[in-house]
């Protein structure tokens, strides 16, 4: 029988993979994809508890998380495009204008 603990283990694995990807890669686009992975691992948790408790609020919350992820992706990719237009790079190590 698959309980919420199985889903919690899975989502913590996916979250950690996303975190490691976010911290290790230098390509800004892949860093944003890692953020999407982390948001999805949170969604797995929400749906697992919604299923376990037979309450639909968790699914509504997952829909909100997807909404926020869409907004974040749109704005973030807009930033990446204007950054590439101005600095000709998507490398996180070279984007250091605000470093002192």
């Amino acid at each position: 029988m698959i309980g919420p603990t199985h889903y919690l283990v899975l989502s913590s694995l996916v979250f950690t993979i996303g975190l490691i990807g976010f911290l290790m890669r230098r390509n800004v686009i892949i860093m944003m994809m890692s953020i999407e992975l982390m948001l999805n691992s949170v969604n797995i948790n929400l749906i697992a508890f919604s299923d376990q408790l037979q309450k639909v609020g968790g699914q509504v919350f997952a829909v909100f998380v997807i909404t926020v992820a869409a907004a974040e992706a749109a704005v973030g990719l807009g930033i990446v495009i204007s950054l590439f237009r101005n600095k000709e790079t998507v490398n996180a190590d070279e984007i250091d204008l605000m470093k002192w």
């Binding site: 969604n43 797995i44 749906i47």
Partner: peptide, 11 residues
């Protein structure tokens, strides 16, 4: 697919 497994078809 996991969401389908948890009976959350809409999500």
């Amino acid at each position: 697919g996991l969401f389908l497994l948890m009976e959350a078809e809409f999500v």
